[in-house]
Amino acid sequence: MLKLDKISYKNVTFSAEYTFNISESGIYALVGESGSGKSTLINLISGFLNIHSGSMSFKNKSLLDLSPSQRPISTLFQNYNNFDHLTIFENIILGVDSKMINNNINRNKVKSVMKKLSLEMDMFKTVSELSGGEQQRVSLARCWLRNRNLLLLDEPFNALDPGLRKDLFIQLVKMHEHNKSQITIISSHFLDELVDIINGVIFINNGSVYENKILQYKEVKDNLDFKKYFLGSF
């Protein structure tokens, strides 16, 4: 489904080359040391960074000629996912209507997705009035409404407390159940928290994917290289 073949990227301080293939839909964890190139990978797939060489395709269609808005992708970051001064409605509808028009059809769409994510509040509240967890749920709602087949999450819940994180992982699973053909890649430092929901692990080491393949959680846990990453040089 999602195939990256020697996708390379270079800038003044960093160079990376990624190769891997995800053949089944599901949720995948993206782990690696800080600065190893996790965000770069997400930015390359999303189209926010230009690749140097290589090929990248999703469902056998090349992604390289498509602009970020044309790619079948929704992306979520750790912060600045919402425009704080805009309302919940505007931030959610943005995913499907860039003019954010307030009409019945759009309101119903937002209302429905808010209900699915247990966001039971006035949709015309500004996002700045919400808590951190609620704000991220608004971002998730936008991704849900956008309903793209690739969902990329760049450490989206790291600033939240463990309880909230768990709650949002449950919402993520709900989302995935809604669109079974979706591939979700979630970058995180807390692999243990994801163990129950992930189908595989992409381990990034010094700008490349470890052994150029998707690993299973058990493989990661038993490997001494990964222990070093999770526990430090002991």
Partner: peptide, 17 residues
């Protein structure tokens, strides 16, 4: 902020909006 730009780019928001 860079993420705002990414958000606008991914959702094809015009310069006017």
């Amino acid at each position: 902020p860079e993420n705002y730009l990414k958000l606008m780019s991914a959702n094809k928001i015009s310069l006017y909006v």
